[in-house]
Nucleic acid binder design. Structure first.
Lengths: 106, 106
DNA sequence: AACTTGCGAAACCAAATAGTTGCACATATA
DNA sequence: TATATGTGCAACTATTTGGTTTCGCAAGTT
């Protein structure tokens, strides 16, 4: 079973869960209240997120709090950084073109 | 059929295609040579990437060049930016903790 | 001890996905 | 014109996915 960060964030519900628990840890029931889907479905999403280490659990009595492992989010950022270089360069090129046009008008 | 950037980059082959054509446009056959999969399979991936506007086509005779739409990659970056704030804050907090420990040692 | 609550896991199902094979259709080349 | 090349698209298949329903278990509550 493929379990990587990119596959995990492919699902919109999982992205919403990530955003939801980004600032504070939450229990499955509390998370499920925010979606019109069953607790079990959310539980499955949480399992997938846990398996790829995007979230971690913290047991408190019979409640389990899920929190975002922000460190893992950097993996996406790392992959993206190779393209960031490109779009910054292209932006500078566009900037150059624009200033050339500007100078021509003078 | 769901077609968004996140679903598009979920597949490892598609991520590889994106990286491959990031710097220069390529034809389906040229792209397929880099993978041990059929030309048709690559063609399907390119179709998905085109549908979500991550790549665009440029016809030249009977050849079709596919190029990355770097602008669309920023959408991922945009989503990620909400977490970037968090991990920068956490890093600063860690930094603060570390310097506190450092000062205690003095 | 009996009941309620919070949860994960297994079994099942419909839909989506990634791949293959075979075809059609242009554009080049002989 | 006949043939080769580059490509997209449809049909089919095996696998994966997201969801539901049902169950069991542990931790609290009565």
């Amino acid at each position: 079973m493929r379990r990587d960060v990119f596959q995990a964030i492919a699902d919109p519900t999982r992205r919403a869960i990530i955003t939801l628990i980004a600032l504070q840890a939450m229990t499955p029931n509390a998370i499920a209240e925010n979606f019109n889907t069953s607790r079990q479905a959310v539980s499955k999403h949480l399992r997938i997120l846990t398996e790829c280490e995007l979230v971690s659990q913290k047991q408190d009595g019979r409640e389990i709090y899920y929190q975002l492992n922000i460190q893992k989010m950097k993996e996406i950022d790392k992959w993206l950084s190779q393209f960031r270089k490109i779009w910054e360069t292209r932006f500078n090129q566009l900037d150059h073109v624009l200033s050339t046009i500007k100078n021509k008008k003078k």
